[in-house]
């Protein structure tokens, strides 16, 4: 019905607008915050309930599933990171499952939530703004990337010392002193590119996926098989992006632990 009222361009723009409160920088995306926190709590509630009842005997089905994920993350961490760090594995687990759940919101049909809200509240759908996929919001992916970046800098300084960290920035790749400024520039770009790439990769993939879903939604009756194909394709995209984010986090943090 929104398609009937809006042009397809307006329809897509409408669906890509967040539910906001506040002005300027102090704007909050309520839908991004709400869904991401909700999904984070879903993750922690399930895993915490298993952790509390974890038995060393024959595990139940839920415990098996949770242990499968935990074991998978633990393997990924152990094959990449060889130091001792109590943070990296739980961090990787949180990132993987949280991002996976947020990405999975992509499978919720784009008009379903606005339609339900409109039914409950009586507000017209064209006035309802709801973006249920938090990872299509650059704020969400950037927050994750900044968290990881802070840890990269923290562990680099903790392991190598502040001078060691700075030295690593300007003494490579070229050993000669006259090239130190160039080195510093290159290394700084490399360092800063990491969170940027981390954030924009996830955001770009999911945003593009969501955009295609919206384009398909304007196709009329033909959208049903096309939606199905695109959703099936997301069986690959959704876990893959979550895995890439987790894996790169582990790699960056293990690089931060390496002393040259």
């Amino acid at each position: 019905m929104s398609v009937a009222e809006l042009t397809s361009q307006e329809y897509i723009k409408h669906h890509l607008t967040n539910l906001t409160v506040g002005e300027g920088f102090w704007t909050l995306h309520l839908d991004t915050l709400g869904w991401s926190v909700f999904l984070g709590l879903v993750f922690l509630t399930i895993f915490r309930s298993v952790a509390k009842k974890a038995t060393t005997g024959v595990p139940g089905k839920l415990q098996c599933a949770v242990e499968l994920i935990v074991g998978f993350v633990d393997d990924s961490v152990k094959t990449t990171f060889h130091g001792k760090n109590a943070l990296i594995a739980p961090l990787a687990l949180t990132i993987f499952v949280w991002v996976l759940l947020m990405n999975a919101m992509d499978w919720v049909p784009v008009d379903l939530l606005p339609w339900v809200i409109s039914l409950v509240s009586g507000i017209e759908m064209s006035h309802i703004y709801m973006k249920p996929v938090p990872t299509t919001d650059v704020n969400m992916t950037s927050a994750l990337a900044i968290g990881v970046f802070i840890l990269i800098v923290y562990y680099s300084i903790k392991v190598k010392g502040f001078s060691g960290f700075m030295k690593e920035l300007y003494t490579q790749p070229f050993g000669h002193w006259s090239l130190y400024p160039l080195n510093f520039f290159i290394e700084l770009v490399t360092l800063l590119a990491r969170p940027l790439a981390l954030s924009l990769r996830l955001f770009g993939n999911l945003y593009a996926g969501e955009l295609i879903f919206l384009l398909i939604a304007t196709l009329g009756l033909y959208q049903l098989p096309v939606h199905f194909i695109w959703a099936a394709f997301h069986l690959l995209v959704i876990p893959l992006q979550a895995f890439i984010f987790m894996m790169l986090t582990i790699v960056y943090l293990s690089l931060a632990h390496e002393d040259h």
């Binding site: 909050l28 991401s36 993750f43 922690l44 961090l91 949180t94 950037s142 927050a143 994750l144 968290g147």
Partner: peptide, 20 residues
């Protein structure tokens, strides 16, 4: 980019600490 990023960062930190 807006204040949402701060909220998400706080949520991220809290979740990771709880998980850990």
């Amino acid at each position: 980019i807006n204040a949402t990023i701060i909220g998400e960062l706080i949520a991220f930190v809290v979740f990771v600490i709880f998980c850990m």
